[in-house]
Design a protein around this nucleic acid. Structure first.
Length: 312
DNA sequence: CAGACGTGGTT
DNA sequence: TAACCAAGTCT
């Protein structure tokens, strides 16, 4: 859950997961739909699919692998997580390299080449931190201390170098360039895409929803039926060809959502009054379900909020 | 390697 | 506001 995600955002999700899935066997035997529902809103949904598959592998296997090499064969477990689990859970003397450790290392060794090109060098330097006697005798504490140093002292914008335990050996500090490191390669522009979605409720307060394909963007999550998301906007008439029922649409407005690699502008149409199910043209547009049982990604939650707010 | 892959908080 | 950043992984 913590991959590319802040602790604050994760905590409520983590607690619910541990309550609902107290053992790896419990997670392994749960339906993927239930897992995605509990992950809804956290983002990077491949993590949920991978975690579920990971739990099933471990349950089959009977126990957690404890070496970096074996851990890294599990779905969703890469170089970083394999080392973090090995060091923190099993006391293996390895250094997990996350964003924090990359930053600390870039400063400690004054690496001025930009990420990602400098990444191999940073990882080699990070591995040398393992020579520290604490790293050898207390791998878990050492890894955790590195994270905490990065998140509380060696921070991205304005590091507080004065109380830093590595102030003296830090080369970037000596050169007065700590705050400028690590350098990053310029990022590519974020294009805009457009889509139209249709919100339909029936007399029992159920909503017309469909599940997205299991792979790719928002894979396996639920959505209100609508158009594809493309680089050109949709005329109303064109969009209505993708609508789940005939006529009587109310325009609710537009919501903007920023994904990591594109900006999405969604036009929301809805039916202000409950609708008879037989007015829906075809089941390809989804089924009527309670929102409570849905796995709605952030963008669909925004559409729903616009619909509900306008209804008042 | 570059791009896909979400969302929320900070500057 | 736009940009940046967060305990990355996979293709």
């Amino acid at each position: 859950m913590l991959q590319q995600t802040t602790v604050q955002a994760v905590i409520p999700y983590f607690e619910r997961f541990l309550t609902d899935y107290p053992t790896v066997q419990a997670l392994a035997s749960a339906p993927l739909e239930d897992v995605l529902q509990r992950w809804a809103g956290l983002g990077y949904y491949a993590r949920a699919r991978n975690l579920h598959a990971c739990a099933q592998k471990i349950a089959e296997r009977g126990a957690f692998p404890q070496t970096v090499e074996e851990l890294q064969t599990l779905p969703g477990i890469g170089a970083y997580t394999a080392r973090a689990v090995a060091a923190i859970a099993f006391g293996v003397p390895v250094v997990p390299v996350d964003g924090n450790v990359e930053r600390v290392t870039a400063r400690l060794f004054a690496v001025e080449d930009p990420i990602p090109a400098a990444r191999p060098q940073l990882h080699r330097y990070a591995a040398t931190l393992n020579d520290d006697p604490i790293a050898q005798t207390r791998p878990s504490d050492f890894a955790q201390a590195l994270f905490d140093l990065g998140s509380s002292i060696c921070t991205p914008r304005s590091p507080t170098c004065l109380p830093c335990p590595w102030r003296t050996p830090c080369k970037a500090q000596a050169q007065g360039i700590a705050a400028t490191l690590p350098q990053r390669a310029p990022k590519t522009a974020r294009p805009t895409r457009y889509g139209v979605h249709f919100i339909v409720a029936d007399h029992q307060g159920q909503f017309l929803l469909r599940q997205r394909p299991t792979k790719g963007l928002l894979g396996g999550m639920d959505e209100f039926p609508g158009t594809e998301w493309r680089s050109t906007s949709w005329s109303a008439e064109e969009a209505f060809h993708h609508a789940p029922a005939l006529s009587n649409w109310t325009l609710y407005g537009e919501v903007t959502h920023i994904f990591s690699h594109f900006t999405l502008k969604v036009t929301v149409y809805g039916t202000p009054l409950p609708r008879n199910r037989n007015q829906v043209i075809d089941t390809e547009f989804g089924t009527f379900r309670l929102l409570k049982t849905a796995a709605l990604p952030g963008i669909m939650t925004k559409c729903l909020k616009l619909y509900k707010t306008s209804a008042e």
